[in-house]
Nucleic acid binder design. Structure first.
Lengths: 214, 214
DNA sequence: GTCTATATCTTGATAGAC
DNA sequence: GTCTATCAAGATATAGAC
């Protein structure tokens, strides 16, 4: 989709620098929205903050996505899709005779890479605790169950294995939400906690640490 | 504290019905705030909604707690205290020679009872994902670590056992946040998921189901 | 497609009576 | 201690120009 070589109608080739295709700008806004929603939650995030982060005007953000709620739902949907895609790829790359524990471990590693995108995971978390909201709650439930089924049916994990996997993931997300990185030097318990969450996944720790400063 | 038999100065005994001691009213507001904050998060909750839920005026809520943020911090502090107290009581009632797994199980049961208070757990969760906020984030980090230390030092669990325990707790909280109760009859995966989170704790399931409707 | 200007509504907080 | 009235700021959304 969107072949860069064939813009639809009004390319206007030689424009200065801030000029970009509408679809790219849309992507830019979505990324900014993911970051801001992740940081402050649905209610805490303002369309103005998102607009500023994306370098566009506030009314444009509202118009492009037909309102703040619709924008959040789109961010949520994309986040869920990215998690699903990441898991599916890990499953596809699984060695043939892998045990359930090995499978869970590999998928967990894939999840670890997602940790570098704080906004994505935290937008998900904010949605997960917003079950009381009619629209957001429904989308969040449906998305969570979709991931559950993926792990059970496509990864071939047992229900207990899936819940164990999800539990670890939720703790990880919570630590990211708390901004509890490695360099919490003011409290040794923090470092110990982070180091024991995913002892085998060193990459995770680096990402967690990075997530606190970035 | 607060002996009901000896009101401080102005008892005004024979008042109609809405009359109550200031301290009780304060407690009432705190409970309402816990519920509303849990439902909509810090930013989503309005002081007006809290006031209405408590049956008092909005300015009174603001004045009584010196602002919305201070009110949330107090709700958060009390929630943390209640979790700590609940854990400590479970630890005190532990049989002498209990294994780490037994200990974790008993403390988990205590946590299960807390699940009946949706507002409490969800106010905590909202705080945990608000690490970016200067005040709330600091309080949330400190509170989370306090619970970590309690489980490690007072319950005698190893760091790995503590993180396993916390992981299960975070998943449980997330399911409560999603309003994913037992009677999610429209999707069999939901029921399966809930039933596998805490297979040994039947009480939890009842509470989870209740949490969806109440 | 994108911006500026602005309407309108919400909300936290203050002032002051009782 | 508690309420009513009210203000000021902030935020979403709309109108319309370019």
């Amino acid at each position: 989709m969107t072949p860069r070589s064939a813009p639809t109608a009004t390319p206007k080739a030689g424009d200065p620098a801030p000029r970009m295709r509408a679809e790219d700008r849309r992507e830019l806004v979505l990324r900014a929205a993911t970051r801001v929603f992740g940081e402050r939650g649905y209610h805490g995030a303002t369309t103005d903050a998102i607009a500023k982060a994306a370098g566009v005007s506030q009314p444009y953000v509202v118009r492009m996505f037909d309102g703040k709620e619709a924008l959040f739902l789109e961010v949520l949907g994309r986040a869920l899709e990215r998690v699903s895609a990441s898991f599916r790829q890990a499953i596809a790359e699984l060695p043939p005779g892998a045990s359930p524990l090995d499978r869970a471990h590999c998928i967990g590693a894939a999840y670890g890479e997602l940790l570098s995108d704080r906004g994505l995971l935290l937008s998900l978390m904010h949605a997960f605790v917003a079950g009381a909201d009619p629209e957001i709650g429904a989308a969040a439930r449906s998305g969570f169950l979709q991931i559950y089924r993926l792990l059970r049916d496509e990864a071939g994990l047992s229900p207990d294995e899936v819940t164990g996997f999800l539990a670890e993931g939720m703790l990880l997300n919570t630590l990211v939400g708390l901004r509890m990185g490695l360099e919490v030097d003011d409290d040794p318990a923090a470092a110990e906690l982070v180091q024991h969450v995913a002892p085998t996944k060193h990459a995770l720790l680096v990402q967690l640490a990075k997530a606190r400063t970035v």
